[in-house]
């Protein structure tokens, strides 16, 4: 399972970086989304993928039942997904506005802020 997930994470990173380096700003948005997914999957994988009991102490005990699953990576991912969703929505609108204002979706045309 870990190997499969590791390969998926690698593919997501590669695809994300490839899309970011394309000239079209629409593909840039897709690339940023893929990168976010790659990071989330990475945390999921590296936070130990395992079957286990829920990390809740049974009534009357003061230790967890072994083996228990670690909930924290999921909590990280959930937070990151929520934040990523907001940022993604903003970036999509930004790209749309930029396309309307500049009149192109080609990065090589968007150089007016880099003129000395």
């Amino acid at each position: 399972m870990e190997v499969l997930l590791a390969v998926v994470v690698g593919i997501l990173y590669a695809a994300g970086f490839y899309m970011i380096m394309r000239r079209s700003i629409v593909k840039l948005i897709l690339g940023l989304g893929l990168l976010g997914h790659a990071s989330n999957m990475f945390i999921f994988t590296i936070g130990r993928v395992m079957r286990g009991n829920p990390p809740v102490m049974p009534h009357g005990h003061d230790v967890l039942t072994q083996p228990y699953a670690d909930p924290l990576p999921q909590a990280f991912i959930l937070t990151a997904i929520v934040i990523g969703f907001g940022v993604q929505a903003f970036a999509t609108v930004l790209v749309k506005r930029a396309y309307q204002t500049v009149g192109t979706d080609d990065f090589d045309q968007m150089i007016s802020t880099d003129q000395p």
């Binding site: 790659a38 990071s39 945390i43 940022v87 930029a98 968007m110 802020t113």
Partner: peptide, 22 residues
């Protein structure tokens, strides 16, 4: 135009940071 460049690089940085924390 500046915003797209700023947003992209900062999101990239956040993705790397998040992966490193994980």
């Amino acid at each position: 135009e500046g915003g797209i460049k700023y947003v992209t690089l900062n999101l990239l940085s956040s993705a790397i940071f998040l992966a490193a924390v994980g």
